[in-house]
Amino acid sequence: MTQRWTATGLSQDLPKAVAMAGHWQGHDLAVWRSASGRLQAWNDRCPHRGMRLSHGFVRGETLACIYHGWVYGADGGCKHIPAHPALTPPATIRVAAFACVEQDGVIWVAPAETVGAPVALRGLQPLRSISLTCDVVAVRLAEPALSGDDVLRGLVQIGGQACEVCLLVQHGASGLTLHALCAVGADRIAASRWLEDLRRRAERKGAA
C-alpha cells in the first residue's frame, strides 16, 4: 500500500497557520497546518462556490475560504458561515479529507482509507522541493548514480564529497516536482546548488 502515498511537500515549507496547494495523482489538495501544528490535506474546493481552499486562511484550528470566509473545522465540517453568523451549518457541508502524514520532514498524502506508512527515509534531512519540465528518465540520465522510479536514491558528489541523496518524485500536469533530501550533516547550500545543476542537466537531456 505504501505506493499510494505521494510526497507533496516538505514540512519546513508549511509553517503553523499556513495553507498551501498540494496534489495526489492529479487531485488538487489544500494542505494546511493549524495554529497548534496539526496537518491536514483536503479536497482543494470550497463546497459553497468552488473556490480553492488552498488560497484560504488559517485561524486557530480552522481553515477558512478566502471567498466568503466559510470556516471548516478539523474534521472538514463547516463550522461557521459569516453571512449567517447565528446559523449552525448543517453537518452535510463538508470538505473531503485525504490521509496526510508527516515523516522524516516530508508531507505525504494518500486517499482517506489508505493504511500503512510511507517509505521511511532514515539518516536524511529535508533539502528543497524543485520543479522540472522533464521526466524521471532525463533525471537518471543526467545523474547515473541515481536509481529508482518514484524514489530516486544514490550517492552523488557534492562539493567534492560523496553524499547520499533521495529525491521523492511527484508527477504534475507540466512536469515533475522533486522533494529532495540529503544526508544529515551535509552542507545544504552546496547540496542546493548541486540540485540546481542537476535540474539544468536533466532538462537539457529531456529537451534533447
Binding site: 486562511f57 477558512a64 470556516v71
Partner: peptide, 14 residues
C-alpha cells in the same frame, strides 16, 4: 494580493 485575514483573530460570534 489579499489581506492575510489570519493576522486578526476571528470576530466573536454573537
Amino acid at each position: 494580493i489579499h489581506r492575510l485575514h489570519e493576522l486578526r483573530p476571528a470576530p466573536e460570534v454573537a
